[in-house]
């Protein structure tokens, strides 16, 4: 009995270790390739881990060197794309949270006509694949002469981030006991004040959860950005990375470097806000 238990305990740790390896090895490999000398990357006979490493690629991206002849260097392309992605993701998140919080509260607490239909439509909007909207959007924004602008991307991202925010916060507000607001209202607060002064301050975790996920969704988006943005100076990071190899020749080391840089922000967010993320993923789905 005792030996059986010991064996089971050992097996448990072996399994955990295997899961750990499967989880981190590909990311580790991406980093290794980004600092490996190129000759180790394109040889089948060399050892798997490179014998010499170099941080040249990171330097070339972060060193502020403006190009001559108007041609953008890889570093510039990256810095611009990162900045664009940050702008779009932050704006999308901020607007969706501000507007969505109000709607979510109405859906969670108030009675009004067509509530169920509107909530269902918002769920549908969140689930709708980009391919169903991109073609009409392409023509509509072209007519409005809004193609190739960052603000257009923000609007388009709101089309799926805002419904997500409403859906999840609706579930979150429902978990907050109604008594708190009722008490405030008896004390003479208006509905809006009861919401702003009682519900909002204790909903921090909900806002963090949705906020982080909204940011990650916008940061990750690819198809709209690929098709609506044409000029180099407005591209977001997923598109810049995708076009990287065709623009600068197939340079795997550089591709992996770009990948590492694009992963740093979402990875940091995921690890810092791990607990909240799991709530943001489940509270819309797992009601109460």
């Amino acid at each position: 009995m005792r030996t059986k238990r010991k064996i089971l305990a050992v097996l448990k740790y072996v399994a955990v270790f295997l899961v750990f390896l499967c989880t981190v090895l590909p990311i580790f490999w991406m980093f290794v390739c980004s600092i490996s000398k190129t000759k180790y990357l394109i040889s089948m006979d060399s050892p798997i881990l490179p014998l010499e490493i170099t941080f040249e690629r990171y330097e070339s991206i972060f060193a502020v060197r403006t190009s001559e002849l108007g041609v953008k260097t890889a570093g510039e392309v990256f810095r611009i794309a990162t900045k664009n992605s940050l702008i779009v993701a932050v704006l999308t998140t901020a607007i969706s949270l501000a507007v969505g919080t109000l709607a979510a509260y109405a859906f969670a607490r108030l009675r009004f006509k067509k509530k169920d239909a509107l909530l269902s439509f918002s769920l549908f909007a969140q689930m709708l694949p980009a391919i169903a909207l991109i073609i009409p959007m392409f023509f509509i924004f072209k007519k409005l002469e809004m193609n190739d602008r960052l603000i257009t991307l923000v609007l388009v991202y709101i089309s799926f981030v805002l419904p997500y925010v409403i859906w999840v916060l609706n579930g979150y507000f429902k978990t907050i006991p109604k008594d708190l607001e009722d008490a405030a209202r008896i004390d003479g607060c208006s509905r809006l004040r009861a919401f702003v002064q009682v519900v909002v301050p204790i909903s921090g975790p909900g806002f963090v959860a949705v906020g982080v996920l909204a940011f990650l969704m916008s940061w990750d988006e690819f198809m709209y950005s690929l098709l609506l943005i044409t000029s180099q100076t407005n591209k977001t990071i997923p598109v810049a990375i995708s076009e990287f190899s065709s623009q600068f020749g197939v340079d795997y080391g550089m591709m992996m470097t770009g990948g590492c840089i694009a992963t740093v922000i979402p990875l940091a967010l995921a690890l810092i806000f791990q607990k909240w993320i799991s709530m943001g993923l489940t509270s819309g789905a797992v009601k109460e």
């Binding site: 989880t23 981190v24 990311i27 940061w219 690819f222 995708s242 995921a270």
Partner: peptide
């Protein structure tokens, strides 16, 4: 482990 398990999901789709 519960934290690190999320890491792959944080890698952007295109990356």
């Amino acid at each position: 482990m519960r934290g690190i398990i999320l890491a792959p999901w944080a890698v952007p789709t295109i990356v």
